[in-house]
Design a protein around this nucleic acid. Structure first.
Length: 156
DNA sequence: GCCAACGTTGGC
DNA sequence: GCCAACGTTGGC
């Protein structure tokens, strides 16, 4: 059982959209390092911080749960889609996606500024400038620290 | 909207 | 394989 942080621009898809839909596919990851995490390490039952990027304010807005492990990202095969990648094919998909379900929206989101202020989170990728990975592993201690900052119970 | 920090592409 | 040009991310 592992913890993750998934980034998304709320103008594209937000925690509120997930709360409404209950479940969504997490497609469009087009970075190899993030792809490797998604394909090889993200497992069913893992818990995910839902991070709003390019937002005001940026930060962690809630929790999702992985409900389906990696499968081929078929949006890469559609020439009309913005996630199209001509190098990908049905037989040899390059890109993968997972499905996540809604768990909880934080009553008090943990903003990026709060994450940066917490010394326990100095090693967290999202707090380091220049880290643009959209799928990031989160340590158990970091997970618990963020929940405390959010004023949330540790048990999900 | 700006721009720094990356990742990717492609000529050589 | 190098590296300049270009595209993207994402905070501010």
């Amino acid at each position: 059982m592992q913890y993750w942080l998934f980034k998304c621009e709320p103008s594209v898809y937000s925690i509120d959209d997930l709360a409404r839909d209950k479940k969504t596919s997490w497609e469009g990851v087009r970075n190899y390092q993030a792809r490797n995490f998604l394909r090889d390490q993200v497992k069913k039952g893992d818990l995910v911080f839902f991070y709003h990027s390019n937002a005001e304010p940026p930060g962690i807005f809630g929790i999702a749960e992985v409900v389906r492990e990696a499968y081929a990202d078929h949006f890469a095969l559609d020439p009309k889609h913005k996630y199209y990648d001509p190098k990908s094919s049905k037989d040899e998909p390059i890109w993968y996606m997972v499905d996540v379900g809604f768990v909880r929206k934080f009553e008090h989101p943990v903003t990026l500024a709060m994450l940066k202020d917490a010394p326990e989170l100095d090693d967290m990728m999202v707090t380091k400038r220049g880290t643009r990975l959209s799928i990031q592993p989160v340590k158990k201690s970091e997970w618990e620290t963020v929940l405390k900052l959010a004023g949330e119970k540790l048990r999900v």
